[in-house]
Nucleic acid binder design. Structure first.
Length: 185
DNA sequence: TAAGTGATTAGC
DNA sequence: CTAATCACTTAT
């Protein structure tokens, strides 16, 4: 399976969020096993809108968002969960795509096992140590592979979940016929 | 619908 | 330093 190259992420965040649907996220475990899942739900965040961590400029946490496209941004929230994003667009512009749900491709996984950003990271053992991983580097423990393209009539574009600001922006995408989506409209 | 949980950030 | 906030999940 072909790995996704950096140019894929060097595009506007919304475009990348849509294009990531159907692609495969891969995470190497400490025992050497690789867990793969099809991306079925994403959200876009850019520094121009207040719900983005980069909205208030560069801080210790948000600095990752300003790195080059293809950088993994992992943050810890609500005292017990991690969320995984991929930095997009131009270096120096704080933005990323949140990976919200995967359809598990490994054996013995429940279809709902990675249906939500917190569950996804718990299931794949994604923690802050993976923050700033370059997913385009050969040696990386997290990377993306080309899956199947998803037709427009099988994609739902709607508002993002769990945020307090800029709630009206329709920057969430999910695959309509997937059972692994966290929440539907 | 509410509570649990702790890092992060802004504001003194 | 303190306190509010938070891109979540699970069990009522």
């Amino acid at each position: 399976m072909a790995r996704i190259k950096r140019t894929f992420f060097q595009k506007p965040t919304l475009e990348t969020a849509r294009a990531l649907l159907g692609q495969i996220m891969c995470v190497r475990q400490s025992d050497g096993r690789v867990l793969k899942g099809k991306i079925v739900e994403t959200e876009a965040y850019t520094q121009d809108e207040p719900s983005c961590h980069a909205f208030c400029g560069v801080t210790k946490r948000s600095s990752t968002l300003y790195m080059r496209a293809g950088t993994l941004y992992v943050y810890f929230t609500y005292g017990m969960y991690h969320c995984a994003n991929v930095v997009t667009d131009k270096e120096g512009y704080g933005c990323a795509v949140l990976i919200r749900a995967l359809e598990p491709l490994w054996d013995d996984a429940n279809v709902k096992a990675a249906a939500g950003p917190g569950k996804l990271c718990r299931e794949l053992n994604i923690t802050r140590v993976l923050n700033q991983t370059d997913v385009c580097a050969k040696s990386a423990d997290v990377w993306f592979e080309h899956g199947q393209n998803v037709a427009d009539d099988n994609v739902v574009q709607t508002t993002r979940i769990g945020i307090k600001k800029a709630v009206e922006l329709p920057w969430r995408f999910y695959i309509k016929d997937s059972k692994s989506v966290s929440k539907r409209i």
